[in-house]
Simulated scan of single mutants.
Amino acid sequence: MQWTSDSSNTVPEIAQAQFNKPELRLGSKGEVVEELQKLLTRWGIYTGVIDGNFDKVTEGSVKEYQRRVFLAEDGIVSEKTWHALYMGMPVGLPELGKGCKGDLVKRLQRLLKSTQDYVGYVDGDFGELTEAALQSWQRRHNLPNTGIVDESTWRALSRIPR
């Protein structure tokens, strides 16, 4: 398995082949579930027994990983979740900046509130307060303080403990 990635938007060929995985959910069994459990263990999420049984503990770990990488927290391991698991980071997220609106902005605002950078309302509106909070956070984490959530910022944000 390849565990490293670079900062480009391309997926290494070896990883691309590995994304052709079945959808997994509560009740799934087998070697592919063992593989999932090993990946979740690798990223510090799963601490249960690697036994090939997609039980409630595995489902909870999948949801936690999905939250960490800004995916829908449904506990179902489909293509996007597999991709994020192999890359060890968020994948396929849009760039966010001033003027953006929506659920991802709300998630960003909640995360920045947890780091005490954002003091505004969690309203899903990427305005000046959100931009300033993000720039402050970026500065402290040695990222370019652009006020834009790009791939490197998404990756760094995914490492904030929650």
Rank of each mutant, 00 (worst) to 15 (best):
Q2T: 10
W3M: 07
W3P: 00
S5F: 13
S5Y: 13
D6K: 03
D6Y: 04
D6Q: 01
N9Y: 09
P12M: 02
I14F: 05
Q16F: 04
A17W: 08
A17P: 00
F19I: 12
K21P: 00
P22H: 01
E23L: 14
L24D: 03
S28A: 12
S28R: 04
K29M: 14
V32L: 14
V32T: 15
V33L: 13
V33T: 08
E35M: 12
Q37A: 08
L39G: 02
L40S: 06
T41Y: 06
W43C: 01
W43Y: 12
G44E: 02
T47V: 04
G48A: 12
I50H: 09
G52M: 11
N53P: 00
F54K: 03
T58F: 03
G60M: 09
V62I: 13
K63H: 09
Y65H: 08
Y65I: 03
Q66Y: 11
Q66I: 11
R68N: 13
R68M: 15
L71Y: 12
L71G: 03
A72H: 13
E73G: 06
D74S: 04
D74R: 05
G75Q: 05
G75Y: 09
G75H: 06
I76P: 03
K80M: 13
K80Y: 14
T81C: 13
Y86I: 06
P90D: 09
L93W: 01
P94F: 13
P94G: 10
L96C: 06
D103E: 13
L104S: 07
V105W: 10
V105H: 07
K106M: 13
K106R: 15
R107H: 11
Q109M: 10
Q109R: 04
Q109V: 02
R110Q: 13
L112D: 00
K113D: 00
S114M: 08
D117W: 00
Y118P: 01
D123T: 15
D123H: 10
G124S: 08
D125K: 14
T130W: 07
A132F: 09
A133S: 09
A133Q: 03
S136M: 10
S136V: 02
W137L: 05
Q138V: 09
R139A: 04
P144Y: 08
P144A: 07
G147A: 08
E151C: 00
T153I: 07
T153Q: 06
A156W: 02
A156R: 15
L157I: 06
R159A: 11
R159W: 03
R159C: 04
P161L: 02
P161K: 05
